[in-house]
Design a protein around this nucleic acid. Structure first.
Length: 821
DNA sequence: GATTGCGCGATTTTT
DNA sequence: TCGCGCAATC
């Protein structure tokens, strides 16, 4: 019985089987947290808990997807699809999609991403006659976001003495008004920003007792991952939801709290104990991920933080190699070093590209790594950065879809009203906006009754044509799925045509992007129709619309229904075909999707991401770049102990991502806004325990030790990238044979000259027909005899016994061998 | 209404 | 350095 329990250690098992009442799991890095959570869900279900009554909240869609998958695997049946597993944002968006009308929003509300929010803010700031140079939308947005995450509404914001003092000091006393106006505008637009998804959920539970009890009854068992990163709104919501049954299980690690800038507070973890009468606390302290060396380094560094939950992370894993510290001259050199080392490690230790991760503090650092990897022909994938959905052409297309579903969405409407050009000029739009503001009606309402507002004949006709087109699209919502509607939009708006006729490279790329968007919508629709199981927003779909989804009464083809003239929205209308593959449903989840989520399988590519994005992930080999003062710790985070300790936790997170090997690198100087800026090595490097760190590539700056390694470090940096290089690059290597993906073409290894100097006439042979018994020469390992051939046709591996270096497994796709006889 | 050119700001971290 | 927003111009 309970076969799945057998693979757990004692505390893990205890955590899994402790089902009733409040439970806090303090889970150190790499201690099998996800395993415990997923097994616990399975165990709940095995003990008769209905899958419909389990809620699991995560921080990323990726984590949610992984959890879902693992539960399914353990259970081996389809029950898992009834679980509510997702990010806070996606789960609440889903609930709000059913309930938003209760708080005055349309159920098909738009979700604004950061760009949308800033754009609305800019409009609002200008309307208040404030200078958007001084009231920078991004700055104001951060401030409002902080307020929202702390459950401070516009009214309280305006009257709170300390908040007002802060705004005075930063010389932005009008933020309160902006906040107020922004909130009103979002409401008018029928839109919620990211923070609203939490805030409105809270409002719903707090303001409607029947809602509270409904969702308390629904979510009888609650699990929350990464609890150390919850902010006050999230804390309040989960507290409300869990209050009735107290079956609430939180998992966290105070040492990995890295989201305080988003309002998260470790206090929540400490508070948890006080919130319930008897909280069971279980610590998971055995690390299964990393080597002793890596763990020792991590533990040693985090010791410098004060006030932690006491715990001792240990491992039974092997000692492993020392972690390596590398110093380079510039950020470009750093990039080269890393790309170079990846290449070398692939050969030396037979890693795949996917085994490597390059982590950094800020997204901007990715550039030098990208360049070097590209130059070396190493495939890579960047997580984060500019998302697919942030591209102009994609936003344009999505804006059409948004307007069709929610005409109140003024942001989207303004974006497309005259794009592609249809003769609705700036003056006309300004006039319409003014009317809308004066009469407190939506912009769409103004243009849909343009005849009443005295537009000039030409403009009037253009507007009416536009409205007719939108109505035409809307009429399809009832019968057509998201893809069909999107295709129609593409055809009728000339949007696609315009891009298609643009024959420049960028134009072509844009056209392809739109095509790609359509494909992904198609995929989404098919997914719904065929399986109706996996939901991209991280929630397992309930095959039939869940009971709480209220079907609206009168469905109407008249788009005016949507803009009934008051701010009280029309009754909830579940638009679209069965609600499943509807355009509204599609849009609801698309904003919450990050490009890390549409990961096309496990492509064999080096992964690049910020340390924040790497949380919860693990990699065989990790490079942490830019370990320098002003960068890591960030110059913006060294003013208080709290900030500095968060940076240190971030460092801790970075280090503990590595399973086997870890490099820390820093550059003497890096390019910043075009000029070279000097940086000191990070203070965190001074905290590393010397016994577990190999500093032979770190040099000593002014205190150059004239060691052999020292010299070679610099040589390594500057060798092989100029014309004088003896190293053969892409153009000179033989064409890839039998490997489907051209990006996998290996690059010639840099000669390490450890113990063998290649023959002067070294030319790699075609090893396609290599047989055991043949004598070969390897550039690095020297002469040897093939003792065994294995591996499949497209990935042959030869075992070679070298005279100098012993037996090695050589992947023929990567290594270059000369057949001697 | 589109095109060009100039000046200035940009770098924390994310749902 | 680079990309964006904005003003000037046709």
């Amino acid at each position: 019985m309970y076969e799945y329990l057998s693979g757990l250690n004692a505390p893990q098992r205890e955590a899994v089987t402790y089902l009733k009442g409040p439970l806090m799991i303090v889970a150190g890095a790499g201690s099998g947290k996800t395993k415990v959570l997923t097994t616990r869900i399975a165990h709940l279900m095995a003990n008769g808990v209905d899958s419909f009554n389990i809620l699991a909240l995560t921080f990323t869609n990726k984590a949610a997807a992984e959890m879902k998958e693992r539960v399914e695997k353990i259970l081996g049946n389809t029950e898992a699809r009834n679980l509510y597993i997702g990010t806070f944002h996606s789960v609440f968006a889903r609930v709000l999609r059913a309930e938003a009308h209760r708080i005055g929003f349309p159920n098909n509300f738009t979700i604004y991403d950061t760009d949308d929010s800033r754009s609305v803010l800019k409009t609002v700031i200008n309307e208040l006659n404030l200078d958007d140079k001084h009231y920078k939308p991004s700055v104001v947005h951060n401030r409002i976001s902080q307020a929202k995450n702390a459950l401070v509404g516009p009214a309280e914001y305006a009257t709170d003495y300390y908040i007002q003092q802060e705004d005075m000091r930063s010389n932005r006393p009008a933020i309160a008004q902006v906040y107020q106006a922004y909130t009103a505008r979002c409401f008018k637009n029928g839109a919620m920003d990211f923070d609203d998804l939490l805030l409105k959920m809270h409002e719903l539970l707090k303001g409607f007792p029947e809602m509270l009890s409904k969702y308390q009854r629904k979510f009888k068992y609650i699990m929350i991952d990464e609890y150390q990163d919850t902010n006050p709104v999230q804390y309040e919501i989960t507290k409300l939801l869990g209050a009735a049954h107290e079956n609430i299980c939180v998992v966290g690690d105070d040492a990995q709290s890295i989201y305080s800038f988003r309002g998260a507070t470790i206090e929540n973890i400490l508070q948890f104990e006080k919130d319930y009468d008897d909280v069971k606390i279980i610590k998971l302290e055995q690390n299964y991920r990393s080597t002793q060396s890596i763990l020792n380094v991590a533990n040693e560094v985090i010791k410098n933080n004060k006030g932690q939950i006491p715990k001792a992370l240990w491992t039974e894993n092997e000692g492993g190699e020392k972690i390596r510290l590398v110093r380079t001259m510039t950020d470009n050199d750093e990039g080269r070093f890393v790309a170079d080392t990846i290449q070398e490690q692939k050969l030396r230790n037979h890693y795949y590209n996917r085994d490597f991760a390059i982590l950094y503090r800020t997204n901007a650092q990715s550039r030098s790594f990208e360049e070097s990897l590209r130059r070396m022909g190493i495939p890579y994938r960047i997580y984060g950065g500019v998302s697919f959905y942030q591209r102009k052409e994609i936003k344009d297309m999505l804006a059409y879809l948004r307007v069709i579903v929610n005409t109140r969405d003024e942001e989207a409407l303004k974006r497309i009203i005259n794009y592609p050009v249809r003769g609705i000029g700036k003056t006309t739009i300004e006039k319409a906006v003014t009317i809308a503001n004066e009469q407190n009606i939506t912009l769409y309402e103004v243009i849909s009754r343009a005849g009443e507002h005295g537009f000039k004949a030409g403009a009037l006709e253009a507007i009416q044509n536009f409205v007719t087109m939108i109505r035409y699209f809307q009429s399809m919502l009832e019968t057509k799925n998201a893809y069909d509607v999107a295709v129609q939009v593409g055809k009728h708006t000339a949007l696609v045509k315009e891009l298609f006729s643009d024959k420049t490279t960028e134009g072509l790329a844009r056209y392809e992007n739109v095509q790609e968007l359509l494909n992904s919508i198609k995929e989404w629709v098919d997914d719904r129709n065929n399986r109706a199981v996996i939901d991209e927003d991280g929630i397992v779909l309930i095959p039939n619309p869940s009971p709480q989804v209220e079907k609206g009464g009168a469905k109407s083809l008249d788009p005016n229904d949507n803009v009934s003239g008051s701010l009280i929205p029309s009754p909830p209308v579940e638009r679209g075909q069965g609600g499943e593959a509807s355009l509204g449903g599609y849009l609801q989840q698309i904003t919450l999707l990050t490009d890390a989520d549409d990961d096309k399988g496990n492509a064999d590519a080096v992964k690049l991401m910020t340390i924040h994005a790497a949380k919860g992930l693990e990699f065989e080999v990790v490079f942490v770049g830019g370990v320098e003062e002003t960068l890591f710790p960030s110059a913006l985070s060294i003013n208080t102990r709290e900030e500095l300790e968060e940076e240190r936790r971030l460092f801790y997170v970075a280090v503990t991502r590595a399973k086997k090997r870890l490099w820390l690198s820093y550059a003497n100087a890096r390019y910043r806004f075009g000029n070279l800026v000097q940086n000191d090595p990070s203070r965190f490097l001074e905290e590393l325990p010397a016994d577990y760190v190999d500093k032979s590539f770190a040099g000593g700056g002014a205190r150059n030790q004239s060691g052999v390694n020292m010299g070679s470090a610099f040589e390594r940096m500057h060798r092989g990238f100029g014309n004088e290089s003896s190293i053969q690059y892409n153009d000179s290597r033989k064409p890839a044979t039998g490997n489907a993906k051209p990006s996998f073409i290996p690059v010639a290894p840099k000669p390490q000259a450890i113990s063998h100097t290649p023959s002067a006439d070294f030319v790699p042979s075609d090893t396609a027909n290599l047989q055991a018994g043949q004598k070969v020469e390897h550039q690095k390992f020297g002469f040897g005899v093939v003792t065994k051939m294995e591996g499949s046709g497209h990935n042959p591996i030869a075992t070679v016994k070298f005279e100098l270096n012993g037996e090695k497994k050589i992947m023929l796709n990567y290594a270059r061998l000369r057949i001697v006889e």
